[in-house]
Simulated assay, not measured.
Amino acid sequence: MQELVSVNSVISKPQDAKISVYDRGFLFGDAIYEVTRSYGKVFFMIEEHIARLRRSAESIQLDLGKTDQQIIEEMYALAKEGGEEDVYIRLQVSRGTCAFKQVSIKPQNTSSANYVMYLHKLKNWDSKYYEQGISLGICKTLRNSKDAMDPNIKSGNYLNNILGLLETDEDFDDCIMLTKEGMVAEGSTFNVFMVKDNVIYTQPDDFDILQGITRKILLELCETHNLQLEKRVFSVEELLKADEVFVSSSTKEVMPVIKIGKNSYQAGGGEISKRLAGLYKDYVKDYCAKAKKDHPIDF
């Protein structure tokens, strides 16, 4: 398929797409975003992604100017143009264009919100990351405190995470970020879980983490299938002594961790990691089957 971009509802090839150099997302990172993927022509948990986009917008006083349904329909329209069943869309919404073509950080006197949607064919992770696992370094760059910048605002400014990745040794696939107290926060783009003595641990919802949609599903699956779960803060020392570690995100799904720093874990994940990965796949399958039946909007 060809990659496509939609800028304020105008679909074009990436090289033909245009956005003002005075756009506040470009100038100041004054933007929010969501990433979603499809399975067999169904965007997974699309309503939840757009609801989170709206919460992010409300948190920064950004007027989306569109209903949730309008945004969803535009995403499906873009995907239909691409013609592939399994795709990835990154939707970014900036506050708009600076008025009078002036570079001013003040948010007043801007145009209406600018929408940019990027459509790509979904690139599946190499099977080795599920058969073996992902390797993670622990970066020195600290995760932004929620008191400074709420991580549940999916901001277009990702410099904090980028700095963490820049300092991570090339021998690792990604990084884990800590709080100033030395507690595990999250990865650059994923939530982190650990298992010790058959108990699954994740950070409290009000901690310095994004409450990921995949994470939310895993918490529901733990409750439904009587898997012991505890929400509490844990240190990097505890993480290194865990029996299993896995990460979650919309594109990674449930991915085992094989190495953190010099510490190694069971290849392919332990029993609990594997069980949750299977339960998650079943959840996706059931969701998509129901979505096709109840809401036959696809491409």
Rank of each mutant, 00 (worst) to 15 (best):
I258M: 13
D63V: 09
M45I: 08
N263D: 14
P14S: 11
D147P: 06
V42D: 07
P14A: 13
V257C: 00
I200C: 07
L119R: 02
L218N: 10
E223F: 06
P256D: 04
P204A: 11
P14D: 10
E170Q: 14
Q69M: 15
V93D: 00
K128P: 10
D298P: 03
I11Q: 08
M183Y: 15
V233Y: 10
I105R: 04
A99R: 09
G278I: 01
L227Q: 12
E34N: 11
V199R: 08
D206C: 10
H49L: 01
V254I: 12
V21Q: 08
F246Q: 09
G268E: 02
K290M: 14
E74C: 09
L53P: 03
A51W: 12
G29W: 00
S273F: 03
I272W: 09
A291D: 12
N124W: 08
L210F: 03
A77L: 12
S145M: 06
V103H: 07
R215K: 15
D63H: 11
I260T: 04
D205M: 11
P14H: 10
R232V: 03
S135K: 10
M1H: 14
I46V: 11
K262R: 12
A289M: 07
L210M: 08
L239V: 04
T202D: 01
H49N: 06
Y22S: 05
R95L: 01
D205V: 13
S248M: 05
V233A: 14
E181H: 06
V233I: 12
R143H: 05
F26H: 03
V7H: 03
K18I: 11
E131R: 12
K128G: 09
I176V: 08
E3H: 13
A51M: 12
F234Q: 09
M75A: 06
F207K: 04
I213R: 04
I297E: 14
V199M: 11
S235G: 02
I272Q: 10
M194H: 05
K293F: 09
R215P: 11
Q132K: 15
D294M: 13
S188M: 03
S112E: 12
N152W: 00
I138C: 07
C98A: 12
V7Q: 06
E84G: 10
L229K: 13
D150A: 07
E3C: 09
V195C: 02
E85D: 15
P151A: 01
L210I: 04
V247G: 03
D86H: 11
V21F: 09
